[in-house]
Nucleic acid binder design. Structure first.
Lengths: 357, 357
DNA sequence: TTGAAAGCGCTACCAA
DNA sequence: TTGGTAGCGCTTTCAA
């Protein structure tokens, strides 16, 4: 790798400029010269130093991606889609995880920008958008994915979380649930919108929502299973237990199902459960999980498309939101025939004693 | 971001050299000068251009990682471990997926090297190591993970696949299996060593291995579930069906279990099933899956440690292998009391008709 | 303690 | 069609 353009130029008795142009298929190099140069390049296994090129051209062919968790299948999906879409245009992805820590995320943003990225994609865990605002002050286009911020206009690619909440809740109503609970997510755009979709749908159907049927689960994306189980126990402690529950994500839903079964509550007969994300947990779990597919596999690709547009446009482009429509994926965990809401419900206590027989 | 050292130097009436030194805590800058500079830097939100720095220093603070699949939980684990370990030292990860395509992998290697990485980590899908040999000819340290190559010495971090095969098979023997099948993986170091661990263990116990009990599954890491199901049907077609099976990975094992249950074969009573990888599929599947934990969460961290050693060492370091020892994770899919091998076995045909009753 | 000069490997610009 | 010159933003070296 110690070989550089100067060396090749010297070997062939041409100038570095000629080599440079030949390598980039510049039209004003003669066929024979180009051939000579390419031959030598191949012979030496030479590759132009992209660091040097970046310094001159001002673009790095690097796109940054910061996600809260690299292992989470949703973000892995996003990363994969983004990576494969930009690869074809010669970009690489600089990936980093914020571990759901706003402070760490801010540091990583700062560090990434020092690498002079051509674009920065973030599924941000910030509670307020100050750090992101700083990015926008610079010259690196910022694309938010999954999570956005009120009163912070930006490019955004994500799914319609309000619609997700609506779809899930509507589905529970359709299969006959009348006392529907929601295990809600964090105080970010995603959690808030899913909750709103839930509430509006419940209201539209004239159903009641006792305050205590909205359950708050901490750290939903990390300890989901444990939190789901805990949330279920919380639900059972209520005087009138729900007959359906919309869970913020699939992992929580799985925790709910597991705990329900071990407490003698039948899913879906006693409790219909639906998650959100549709993240490959479908097939082998004991009760295949109904979920809302939020198109995680498309988000990366759409973000890539948006980035390429932004980078290709001469004049500054206006911010835009790309909102993907979620889709119901109904499976066994909500598969029951609609029954009348007049069926008297067992209380949590009743259920528990039934389970202990 | 249009701000650079020259600007700061001009503003403060010092030279760029002074600014540069102050930023890197060079000892020979006076306290007051340094303070003045750092103040101004903070005021402007200035960050040194790492591209320019790289060009001069010759190192990029970039580490490349190429894996066959970004979504595969094993590689996601590796990526996460690697990323978090090198982050603290100021490195970023340039990540790319080869999609299990050797040609594409070779291209990506080439492209990555053009970015003048400080190290390159690959879970390679090459069938022969020529492309990797080319990397070693250059100056970028190459670290293989998960998969290695015979007669290609290099730095390597992975788990002991022979031991994994041995552990899994030993466990099946211990729970009473006597006709043990293996759904084998690809013709790479991982597949071959797990197979060898399997074969040696079977032999050591004086058990028979009819040729047809070693089943070959294509594309094990992509269509695992389908292939697992197909492999099970293949097993059922044999005159004497196995009573235990060691599957190359967890996803195949899940496919086997699913198909077995739907064919009326009880797991683990009729067929004990063990996978390999221990990749978070444990809890909610119908029959919790026994597996071999291959320490995927440690591989990235160990690779990082090795890289930092290599980069820190003045003299060229010798190649070394870091081999992590796998561990049995026994769960329900192999949980049966050892029974005598004299129990007559149903044939696949008999089982099938039983299932159709 | 500070800074002038040189140069990392490449590309842009303009002249030949 | 070719190439000399300048310079991207920084660090290194060495002289002041």
């Amino acid at each position: 790798m110690a070989v550089n353009m100067k060396g090749i130029a010297r070997d062939l008795g041409v100038s570095t400029v000629t080599v440079s142009k030949a390598l980039r298929n510049h039209p004003d190099i003669s066929k024979t010269t180009r051939a000579r140069i390419l031959d030598r390049v191949k012979e030496l296994g030479y590759r132009p130093n992209l660091t040097a090129r970046s310094l001159v051209t001002g673009h790095s062919s690097l796109i940054g991606l910061i996600v809260p968790d690299l292992i989470h299948p949703f973000f892995a999906d996003v990363a994969k889609g983004l990576s494969s879409a930009v690869r074809q245009r010669g970009y690489f992805l600089l990936i980093s995880s914020s571990e759901e820590d706003p402070e760490l995320e801010a540091q990583e943003i700062d560090h990434m920008l020092a690498h002079r990225l051509d674009a920065l994609v973030i599924a941000s865990c910030q509670t307020d958008p100050t750090a992101l605002r700083n990015v926008q002050r610079g010259e690196t286009p910022l694309i938010l994915v999954d999570r956005s911020f009120k009163s912070f206009p930006s490019y955004f690619v994500g799914s319609d979380d309000y619609a997700a909440g609506k779809l899930a809740t509507e589905h529970l109503v359709n299969v006959g649930c009348r006392r529907i609970a929601h295990i809600r997510g964090p105080e970010n755009s995603v959690g808030i919108r899913r909750l709103k979709g839930f509430l509006d749908t419940i209201r539209r159907h004239g159903l009641a929502i006792p305050e205590e049927n909205i359950i708050r689960a901490p750290r939903v994306d990390v300890d989901g299973k444990l939190n789901g189980a805990a949330a279920l126990r919380q639900m059972m402690a209520l005087p009138e237990m729900a007959d359906g529950v919309f869970c913020y994500n699939d992992v929580i839903a799985m925790g709910v199902i597991k705990e329900a079964l071990s407490q003698g509550i039948n899913v879906p007969e006693d409790l219909a459960v639906i998650g959100c994300g549709n993240l490959h947990y479908d097939a082998e779990i004991r009760v295949p999980l109904s979920s809302i597919d939020q198109r995680s596999n498309q988000i990366g690709g759409r973000a890539a498309k948006l980035i390429l547009e932004i980078l290709g446009s001469e004049t500054p482009m206006e911010f835009q939101d790309v909102i993907l429509q979620p889709k119901l994926a109904a499976r066994a965990s909500t598969e029951r025939t609609a029954r009348s809401s007049s069926t008297p419900a067992k209380t949590g206590a009743q259920r528990r004693s039934a389970a202990n027989v």
